[in-house]
Computed example of a mutant assay.
Amino acid sequence: MAVRYDWETIRAEFEAGATMGTLSRRHGVNKAAISRRARKEGWTADLTDVVNRRAEAKVNGTVNAVDPQKKAAAVEAAAARKAAVISEQREAWGGFKSEVRAALDANDFDRLKCLKIASEALRNAQECERKAWGIQDKAETEVSGGLSITWEK
């Protein structure tokens, strides 16, 4: 009878950085067999996604949250923080828009020049903030049911 190996686990451990030698000893599989399977299925040992997910979990406080209620609370808190960032950014542009209208009404072109420079600085700061929070601009998303958030550049 042929020996069956847990290839899903072997692949997961390989993609998380385990060497073929370690996997061979741990699972009793020949290194050549692991190598053939990895090549055939296109396994990659790129840890970028794994590290990013782990870091996001640590930032959001969901790392060791086995209790579903604790995990849900941590996810809700992280979503609330991101929503607060988005709301704050929208409010900043709302106030900025009022300043531009007032300067236009007063024909204050010096003020408009300053506002143009300020708008570029605000846009750059907000782009950096959005990157730091992992907020991505999308025209439409499946999750939002078509609700879109558009940021003009």
Rank of each mutant, 00 (worst) to 15 (best):
Asp108Ser: 09
Asn30Asp: 13
Gly21Ser: 08
Ala125Arg: 15
Ala121Asp: 11
Val63Gly: 10
Lys31Met: 10
Trp7Ile: 03
Thr19Glu: 03
Thr44Val: 06
Asp49Ile: 06
Thr22Phe: 02
Ala84Ile: 01
Asp6Thr: 08
Asp105Leu: 15
Val85Asp: 05
Leu115Trp: 01
Gly21His: 02
Gly17Leu: 01
Ala55Gly: 02
Leu115Ala: 00
Thr141Val: 08
Ala73Pro: 00
Thr62His: 06
Lys113Tyr: 06
Ser35Leu: 05
Arg101Pro: 01
Thr141Gly: 14
Val75His: 00
Ala118Tyr: 02
Ile117Gly: 01
Val100Glu: 13
Lys153Asp: 08
Met1Leu: 11
Lys116Gln: 11
Glu140Ser: 12
Val59Trp: 03
Met20Leu: 11
Val50Ile: 15
Ala32Asn: 13
Pro68Gln: 08
Glu152Leu: 12
Ala80Pro: 03
Ile117Lys: 14
Leu115Thr: 01
Gly21Arg: 11
Ala84Gln: 13
Lys116Asp: 08
Trp93Thr: 15
Thr19Asp: 00
Ile34Trp: 03
Gly21Cys: 02
Leu104Val: 11
Ala139Pro: 05
Val143Cys: 02
Asp49His: 05
Cys114Tyr: 06
Gly17Tyr: 00
Ala118Asp: 07
Leu47Asp: 00
Ser35His: 04
Cys128Leu: 11
Val63Trp: 08
Glu8Lys: 10
Ala139Trp: 12
Ile86Ala: 11
Ala78Cys: 02
Cys114His: 09
Lys116Gly: 05
Tyr5Asp: 12
Tyr5Gly: 07
Lys153Ser: 08
Ala118Val: 06
Ala38His: 05
Arg25Asp: 14
Glu129Leu: 15
Glu152Cys: 08
Glu13Arg: 14
Lys31Gln: 14
Trp133Cys: 06
Glu120Tyr: 02
Asn60Cys: 04
Gly134Ala: 03
Asp108Ala: 12
Ala77Ser: 04
Arg36Asn: 09
